[in-house]
Design a protein around this nucleic acid. Structure first.
Length: 123
DNA sequence: AAGGTGACTGGCG
DNA sequence: TCGCCAGCCACCT
């Protein structure tokens, strides 16, 4: 039987100009409300590439110091801060989140039940 | 241009 | 619920 995958594969990964994804990621991260957090996967989905969670991390990793993108509001699916500790930013991320009254569980994770932002509809 | 890296995630035991 | 494994996609050299 011929591979009639047509468009039923559910993921129409439309090829876009280089950097378009990155620009979209930054745009969405900027929309995360203060006191809220989103997962890498959430941002990836909003940016049009649900499977590119790691790509989101790569984009945030490339942010410059003068950037107005609230990178600290992006955590992993479990609410953990997965930034490399060596960069010294992991503790900074936690500090910034706490300054926005984001609560952490005893296990050191963001209380997603209370602070998880999943997009424009979810706010 | 090609291959390696990683601020992830879903699936499984 | 937790830990481990493999797949994924964009970025960088």
């Amino acid at each position: 039987m011929a591979p009639s995958f047509s468009s039923t594969d559910g993921l129409a990964r439309e090829r876009r100009p280089p950097g378009a994804f990155a620009a979209d990621v930054r745009s969405w991260v900027q929309r995360i409300p203060e006191g809220k957090v989103a997962s890498y996967g959430d941002i990836a989905a909003l940016a049009g590439s649900p499977r590119a969670a790691r790509g989101v991390g790569a984009v945030l990793n490339g942010l410059t110091e003068g950037s107005d993108v609230p990178w600290w509001r992006v955590v992993n699916r479990s609410g953990e801060l997965t930034i490399p500790a060596e960069l010294g930013r992991r503790s900074l991320q936690r500090t910034l989140l706490m300054s926005e009254d984001v609560r952490f569980t005893p296990g050191g994770r963001v209380d997603l039940a209370r602070h998880h932002w999943t997009g424009p509809d979810g706010e």
